[in-house]
């Protein structure tokens, strides 16, 4: 990860996302969305980045179990932490969007919370976040380094194997307001090509790549910091 070109790419893509995403007058006029449709470039990308980071975390956990090399354990943990941050940001951007589209304007927002919180996509995201919070609690409650790494990796893999089915199963069981939920079909709204206006894709896809790269960048910084902190534990840490 000591190449630098992808960091520049990340900055360029995010600058493009912010300017084109917020200013470029190419978005379709959807009656109940209006200008809030631009939130697509932020809200949906957060979930993409979260899932990609969690997947990276599981890959590192598998690598740890195969090699017993502690650097993979540290990478796995830091990917999970960054994924959680992106998940929370996804919730935050979703809340802004929801308060303009779903919430009943005649009652205070808190009154419609209990209905909105049963939204399948929210439950799926809540499961993902709860799993990784539990992972952090479990991993950090063990003091022995090797044991901590091994048990954390095992739980990480076990829980992740249930996360994806959960995201496929739940939308089939509950009614949904969320795009992509009509007709009990479920699925991911962002991957449904019929839903998205073609001209929005020119910003949307670069935005996904940009935000994901940002997540990886943050993680790589945190990993390097952790390597410095734990330097005394192991003789030969990798360079970066």
């Amino acid at each position: 990860m000591n190449k630098w070109w992808w960091k520049i790419l990340c900055i360029i893509l995010l600058l493009y996302t912010l300017t084109a995403g917020l200013l470029w007058n190419n978005v379709p006029r959807v009656p109940n969305l209006q200008e809030t449709i631009r939130n697509l470039y932020f809200h949906v990308c957060m979930w993409f980045a979260m899932m990609i980071l969690f997947t990276a975390s599981v890959v590192q956990a598998v690598k740890y179990l195969r090699t017993n090399d502690l650097q993979y354990d540290i990478r796995s943990r830091e990917f999970a932490v960054t994924g959680i941050v992106f998940g929370i940001l996804g919730y935050a951007t979703g809340t802004i969007w929801m308060s303009y589209t779903w919430a009943d304007p005649n009652t205070p927002t808190t009154a419609s919370f209990s209905q909105i919180a049963k939204e399948p996509k929210l439950i799926g995201a809540a499961i993902a976040l709860l799993i990784y919070f539990a992972y952090l609690v479990l991993r950090d409650s063990i003091s022995d380094i090797d044991k901590k790494a091994r048990i954390g990796a095992v739980y990480n893999i076990f829980a992740f194997a249930f996360l994806f089915p959960a995201i496929w199963i739940i939308p089939r069981l509950l009614p949904s307001l969320h795009p992509g939920g009509e007709g009990g079909e479920g699925g991911n709204p962002a991957l449904n090509y019929k839903d998205l206006a073609p001209q929005m894709r020119t910003v949307f896809y670069p935005a996904i790549i940009g935000w994901t790269l940002l997540g990886v960048w943050i993680t790589s910084l945190k990993v390097r910091m952790r390597f410095l902190k734990e330097k005394n534990l192991i003789e030969q840490w990798p360079e970066k």
């Binding site: 499961i127 709860l130 539990a134 044991k147 959960a166």
Partner: peptide
């Protein structure tokens, strides 16, 4: 058991997995 924890951590670990 391996983490030398009690049954409370089972609930924390298990609830998100068992919801679906």
């Amino acid at each position: 058991a391996k983490a030398q924890q009690n049954a409370a951590i089972m609930a924390i670990l298990g609830f998100p997995i068992i919801i679906p």
